[in-house]
């Protein structure tokens, strides 16, 4: 019996967005008299943190505290159109739409403040704590709550903005496949370290090194959630998951979370994750989408690590103990 150790590599890219189908999303931003700004969307948060990203981008653009942003989303009566949450498009499309809407709202806010403070709007700035102030002055300022009240009850001004992201739809050229299917490419390189039990074919993933180039991590803690949750899913895809364990034979399809195999908390690999940022020209604050890509590189990295460990080349997913043991048996028979 031997526990064999191996390391494998994989490097991938992943497209942001789906403009083979036309890919618009809208956002509306308006101030209420509480000084809060409501971001209205119809986009869905799947747990990846879209609402948080929308609030961060709105706060940054408006120059106001994060706490002043309310995200009201996923009601088709109250939120403007969004294609949906898929294709790693949420941060990119919603982010861009929110920036556009927040910029317009910010202009309206500064104009209202200029009227109230009797100065020129171009001379105003936000300080990030809720005040709009005259550049270089400590006295000439107004808090956003006072401004919102004044705008509504005194100035008769709305503080609101509209935003949309639309990338023109691309139609593939049928003969050559010439097309513009995406808005940006994010990148990743994964290194997997595994052991293989040469008597049972059981693989243990010891360590995953995850390097991601994401344009801009709007929220690094949530980017880590995507990277490490996705790395876990990649391990799961590589070694465990399928709805048809005897594909193409349809028998023994798993019915619940016991039969549908995924690694449990006891099976976790150690994770080391690094983010590189090369802002994308068309991304919100440079962000690209990473929601989907994080499960991809781990799969071949693990396949290659298994080969490195024991010489078995896996060409069919998932890499079950059986497939590895059959490979080992074949190698032994050949030797």
């Amino acid at each position: 019996m031997a526990i064999l150790r191996g390391r494998g590599y994989a490097a991938v890219n992943y497209p942001t967005g789906m403009n083979l189908g036309g890919d618009p999303t809208q956002a509306l931003v308006h101030a209420t008299t509480t000084g809060n700004f409501v971001v209205s969307l119809s986009s869905v948060d799947l747990g990846q943190g879209l609402k948080t990203v929308a609030a961060q981008v709105a706060a940054e653009t408006l120059g106001l505290p994060y706490e002043n942003i309310i995200v009201d989303t996923a009601d088709t009566d109250t939120g403007p159109h969004c294609m949906g949450t898929f294709a790693s498009r949420g941060t990119h499309r919603v982010g861009n739409a929110v920036i556009m809407a927040a910029q317009e709202a910010r202009e309206a806010m500064l104009e209202a403040a200029a009227e109230e403070l009797e100065v020129d709007a171009a001379d105003l700035e936000t300080d990030g704590t809720g005040f709009i102030k005259l550049k270089g002055s400590e006295e000439k300022k107004i808090h956003v709550v006072d401004l919102a009240l004044a705008a509504h009850f005194k100035l008769g001004r709305t503080i609101a903005g509209r935003g949309i992201f639309l990338k023109e739809r691309s139609y593939p050229e049928p003969e050559t496949g010439k097309m513009d299917p995406d808005s940006a490419q994010a990148h990743a390189c994964t290194v997997a370290e595994v052991t293989v039990d040469d008597e049972t074919g059981v693989v243990e993933v010891l360590h995953m090194y995850n390097v991601y180039e994401v344009g801009r991590a709007i929220n690094p803690a949530m980017a880590r959630q995507q990277i490490e949750g996705g790395a876990w899913m990649g391990v799961s895809h590589a070694l465990y998951e399928t709805t048809e364990p005897y594909y193409p034979v349809r028998e023994h399809g798993p019915r619940d979370f016991e039969e549908y195999l995924m690694p449990g908390p006891a099976d976790n690999a150690q994770m080391t994750s690094e983010i590189i940022e090369f802002p994308a020209a068309n991304g919100p604050y440079g962000a690209k989408g990473i929601g989907e890509m994080t499960a991809n590189a781990p799969i071949p990295a693990i396949a290659n690590a298994i080969y490195d460990a024991c010489g078995v080349r896996l060409t069919e997913m998932p890499f079950t103990p059986e497939s590895i043991l059959r490979g080992l048996d074949e190698l032994r028979a050949r030797a």
């Binding site: 959630q225 490490e228 949750g229 996705g230 876990w232 899913m233 449990g264 908390p265 976790n268 994770m271």
Partner: peptide, 11 residues
């Protein structure tokens, strides 16, 4: 079962 996090942050 957690399908999102990979459990590590929960642990």
């Amino acid at each position: 079962v957690c399908r999102c996090t990979g459990y590590e942050s929960i642990i």
